[in-house]
Design a protein around this nucleic acid. Structure first.
Lengths: 343, 343
DNA sequence: CCACTTTTTTGACGCGCGTAAATTTTTAAT
DNA sequence: ATTAAAAATTTACGCGCGTCAAAAAAGTGG
């Protein structure tokens, strides 16, 4: 610190009494040098707080320590949460995560991948839009970089995919709702921007049939990411006109459910599973705010932790072995029923 | 596209019939070359989709096109939203924003600034923790890079600051609450992690005195960022024991208010400004979910747009003129009263 | 057409580090 | 102590682009 500022690795190597290539080796993997050497370097490091130039480091290297993390919309707390976990897991592993949000705009997903290209990432974790994604762009990217998908699946794309088993989770919820009261009808977006929505739809139908019940589906018009607003307006309309065949509504996701809860409250409909309640509403995802809705939302908790960790771990294993897995890995984690007051 | 892949600027210059230095000039400022030259380059660009190597570009250059954006916690929708706007504003201006969240951990703020250092950012937009920030680290950073603060102020730090005028906004809310019913008491965190909380506290006291009312303050124990949880538990305790002197509660922020609304609902207390309501609850910030709470939350909307835009614009002006403003700019924007059903 | 300004080209150097091959030193094992 | 293996050093080159000075070319106005 007292010494004149270290300008580059050459100078730093000099003051630490080690040759530059060895210092370079140290920075790329501290364990790759002899302990005594490492000690010397780290001592010098404390005194001079030198850090290698990121740009120079990466320019003449095939694989950087950068990990791209791309999510469709950080404004959605779900992605904010799972992005956070992925980010922290990367840091723990000694990588530099670069978190990019596509702000709900599918075209921006391609842009983000394109930006990442120039950063030569060691690998990329992508939660794709799905149907709305530019499949060609994603697959082209897949060919050039190790790519792991999470949350939403795209067939034949990415070397692995981790998400929630919507068939298990929806079945679990339907089972619970049937056991504890009327079988549910299903409330969803008409043109969902996420493939999980389609799976849940299908899962609901199948589950109802397994329970020898007639499925009833209600779809909300509306585009974009304003799920609460859509749930409130369209859900409110349905509630008002008494359109639902049953008094139990399973929403495709928590954000729709939050909107519908809001609409029900405005209509003075008492939501809950207790006596004197007019309506039960359940969601899916365990949105961070679900425990604070009125009433608290009964929902399915996705295993964020497992999805994030497994996605990261799988990617890192690919990076270590420096080869792609022989066949694409797909793993679905079970959802957990969270019984709160709304259903 | 059909041609063999372009490897570097040399090759790209060859196929576009322009010398490499001129091409380099083009990429640094397309307007700095003759229109006919620009045309040639852009034609070639379409055919070969070459992009200069980011690392090589930045290594031998003082000022990059990188803009650091650091927020304390992206999991908080407030920061997620304002971060989003800042990010988009940077992209529009032709810069590369790098959005970093400190995940609620003050020490990570310094780490993030340290990481940014090595990216040689042209400038940085920082929403600091405030009291919990490592002031030395931030000021050291301030000396080395153009720095603009937003949301939370730190004295003598950063070349400018943009935020909300808490005195105006709290006064506005107190005024409204007094006119429309009982004067409010104030509910806040005991040890807030954000300087705005202190300002709001002070603003509440002053405003109440101006209205010739006695201020009543209630503080919630609890650390961290789980404001809703804290608001629910501590707020619920206060409601249950009937501790509030008045039936109107002004919460220091929406997230506390959301927690308290949840507690009130659980206690079967009817919240709202209408007949037969037991309690009025108001918040501050216009949290994205405030319009969907039960009842919808009366609150103060911060002018996200203005704060983000002015912060970005101020930074870019500094970059253009390549000099710091003679004196530190501080600008506070007015909050807007949003009357919903809760108060 | 000429003189003048603006733009482009040429040629060359350097940024800070990765990386490879050959050599020397250190460590571990016999 | 001897030998083999492991680690560090030396030397040298290259990455892709920024940038500068000097020369050449292209526009401009009269």
């Amino acid at each position: 610190m007292v010494q004149p500022k270290i300008r580059n690795m050459e100078e730093f190597a000099a003051v630490s009494g080690i040759s530059r290539p060895t210092v370079s080796k140290y920075f790329n993997d501290p364990d790759s040098v002899r302990p005594s050497t490492r000690q010397k370097i780290e001592t010098a490091l404390e005194q001079h707080n030198y850090r290698p130039n990121v740009f120079a480091m990466n320019q003449n290297r095939r694989k950087t320590k950068n990990i791209g993390v791309v999510v469709p919309n950080l404004a959605d707390p779900f992605f904010s949460e799972i992005g956070r976990r992925v980010e922290l897991a990367c840091i723990d592993a000694g990588y530099s995560p670069i978190l990019l949000s596509s702000h709900g705009i599918p075209e921006m997903e391609s842009d983000n991948l394109e930006s990442l290209r120039s950063l030569k990432p060691a690998g990329v974790l992508l939660a794709p839009f799905g149907r709305l994604s530019n499949k060609e762009a994603v697959q082209a990217f897949d060919r050039d970089f190790p790519l792991v998908l999470f949350d939403a699946n795209m067939s034949d794309t990415g070397q692995a995919y981790f998400g929630t088993d919507n068939f298990q989770s929806i079945d679990l919820m339907v089972e619970y709702l049937c056991r504890s009261g009327e079988p549910p009808c299903f409330f969803e977006m008409k043109s969902p921007s996420n493939p999980n929505a389609n799976k849940r739809h299908q899962a609901y139908v199948e589950s109802m049939e397994r329970h020898r019940q007639t499925p009833h589906i209600f779809q909300a018009e509306g585009e974009g990411w304003n799920f609460e607003e859509i749930g409130k307006i369209e859900g409110g309309r349905l509630l008002e006109s008494n359109a639902f065949k049953t008094k139990t509504v399973l929403c495709s996701n928590d954000r729709l459910a939050i909107g519908m809860l809001s609409a029900a409250y405005a209509l003075d409909l008492r939501v809950g599973h207790g006596q004197g309640c007019h309506l039960r509403i359940a969601g899916h995802d365990d949105h961070p705010f679900s425990r604070f809705t009125c009433p608290a939302l009964t929902t399915i908790a996705q295993d964020y932790e497992a999805i994030a960790n497994r996605a990261v771990r799988t990617l890192f294993e690919m990076l270590q072995d420096d080869e792609r897995p022989p066949n694409r890995v797909e793993m679905l984690f079970e959802g957990r029923l969270v019984m709160r007051d709304s259903a």
